[in-house]
Design a protein around this nucleic acid. Sequence first.
DNA 1: ACGCAAATTTGCGTGCGCGCAGATTTCTCT
DNA 2: AGAGAAATCTGCGCGCACGCAAATTTGCGT
Lengths: 210, 210
Amino acid sequence: MREQKKQATREALRAAALRLALERGPDNVRVDDIAEAAGVSPRTYNNYFSSREQAIVAAVTSEREARVAAAVAARPGGVGLADAVVEAIVDQYTASDAPGQDALLLITTRPALRDAFIDTTTAIEHPLTEAIAERLGDGDPSIARVLAASVAAAVRVALEQWLQTAFSSSTASGLVVPSGSLPDFLRATLAPLRPALDAAEQRALRHRQR
Amino acid sequence: MREQKKQATREALRAAALRLALERGPDNVRVDDIAEAAGVSPRTYNNYFSSREQAIVAAVTSEREARVAAAVAARPGGVGLADAVVEAIVDQYTASDAPGQDALLLITTRPALRDAFIDTTTAIEHPLTEAIAERLGDGDPSIARVLAASVAAAVRVALEQWLQTAFSSSTASGLVVPSGSLPDFLRATLAPLRPALDAAEQRALRHRQR
DNA sequence: ACGCAAATTTGCGTGCGCGCAGATTTCTCT
DNA sequence: AGAGAAATCTGCGCGCACGCAAATTTGCGT
């Protein structure tokens, strides 16, 4: 129940940060305000989030890491590693778009939030490493780590491209986030890594036969 | 000569930061001290480096980015993309170990410096993207970007592993940095990406024939 | 050589991240 | 239930990153 309370305050901080950021605009939100709204000390805030932007972004991306890993693990073994990874990621990144449309717009606006959002891709690295290692069996564990890191990097590139087009198109037309094209970007940036994933999978198969 | 002066102060800041960090230990170095030693205002310091650790680390890794890209470009076209990239990186990361042995020891000691050192891998991404794009011809430019990002990620993993073993072995035996094994780590983490590099290269070849 | 424009430097103020140590809460064992 | 242990929360203080605008330097045209 200690853990419950921790997650509760964490969630409270997330919610407060997002709400205040949407109400007043992200620049008019002091970290003290968020802490007060969540009913904790300002110092405690920094025990949960190491930067002000993290809390706001976390409200959108919270626990996407675990979901991605679970989604990879959920795919049946016959699917092939590359397909499993790509589809799992596409699923998770398209699914979590719907809830916070306005929040995403807020994020794309402010560069600091944009960077924090992009940095969240590194968080999927560890869970994804374990999920890939699970599928590859216990070969060289550093292979899974490199593949996971590369996938995370590809996702980051996709987000960068997507946010860039979102920004430029929003100036041209109205304020529109082209969320429909995110899956396309993800598939495009993940495609070059497929040979590496396939090779690792076949290496694991050969290793397992012996 | 404006650019000359800028690079001069940048270099002065680097040198001052490293010298002071080695003399007193990195915790006893204020940013004001570095600025004063370089003969500039403290505020100017932050116009060049956005964190105190960056200056110290930059003294070791300065312009490794450009060197890696140049090394890739220097390999003859017949070598094959994967070999060109791997060997170029191994060369640059083994070559620049020699100058600052003591500095590296300092970096491995302090976690903050360790993190800053690892973060420098992202700096090679942009030059490497251009170098790879050059070799692939003008196909989809995002392919080169993903490959470069993946390579940078693999290098980061290698550095993490290397620093971890360096730390644990230094407690066991004396204060020894196992620099001899860095190339091995690099080759190991880059190996899983070879299929992706090969595939991209062949894709470019097919595209070029048409 | 002189003055104008652009770039760089500098001082100032603000908010923030975090180490530290004491107070407070929560868990565990008997 | 009660006492001790462990984890968490909180107040304090320090340095630092950075936006802003004025001052200084640098480059260029005439």
